[in-house]
Amino acid sequence: MSEAAAIAAPARARVRSGAWLAPAMIVLCSLAAYCVAAAATHQTGQISVDGFVGLIQRTVALGIVALGQTLAILVGSIDLSVATLVSVGAVMASWMMQGQPDMMVPASLFVLALSALVGVANGLIVTQLRVNPLIATLGVGLVLQGILSASFQDFAGSVPKEFQIFAYGTVGPVTLSILLMFALALVEWLALSRTRFGAHVYATGGNPEGARLAGIKTARVVVLAHMLCSLAAGLTGLYLASRLRSGAPWVGRDGVYDLESIAVVVIGGTVLAGGKGGVWGTMSGVILFGCLDAIFTMAGVDAFIKQVLRGAIVVAAVAAYAYRTKGHVA
């Protein structure tokens, strides 16, 4: 409203452009840092197709969760229950399969249906009970984690060999799971930019009251976004079960998928208040995190120190974006 701000933007209107530029820069810089680190630690073998595939492979779990988180944040909500849901997905999948190939499809469908249900619950608590989404999803996460930890103390069951194709199967030099992640990103990008649902997601996140008055059923959009976000977390659970051959009730928490997915979404330029941002930004954030992790590993950083650095990097990365914002944040 301030006139100063109005003048700050030059009199002529700004046109949206360069949506690709920032993500591309982040990806290029991350990969360059990765190569430099590999060269500096004399692990030039990492600068190869296999090296890069391995690098991306380690980001798949975070990537899929973050794609879901992007939707939740774009509608102006947030999801802190994803880490728990990843554990639930992984444990339920391996426990139901018990190494039986014929249980693969029913178990996977069950996990996805359960995830969708949790997402709908999240969405309804946020829209109908009007509970702050941070608290709502935190609470749902606590409930799920509590029930899961009470029921399972350790790795439960196992997945059949056939199911491991999901994580380890390859097409040429690239694994199926990497292709899946990029396919999901592409679909989500198309949905956000080319469909009415996408337009409603941005409208709901950008100005909920205005969107409602324009006839958009904003509650439905929020519930749908939460459902898709939870589905992505459930899918990640299936992927981890496939990769680890079994699920344990702490796999999600250990991956810190809640915090890290939020961090990569924000690094990717999506604003926490909603209504602005997109898929490719998130993917660039994912790749940045993957590179940093790889660099620490190559440099031989201790696992606990790595955790210290991870925390610091999350804060630093968000700070790099947040610093330019005018006004206050809490």
Binding site: L259, A263, V308, G311, V318, H328
Partner: peptide, 21 residues
């Protein structure tokens, strides 16, 4: 101007890491 929920979650990770290390 980092939202405190992010900043303190980051601090949670880092401080726990320090304690464990």
């Amino acid at each position: 101007k980092v939202p405190s929920i992010i900043a303190s979650l980051g601090a949670l990770l880092s401080i726990k890491g320090v304690a464990l290390a």
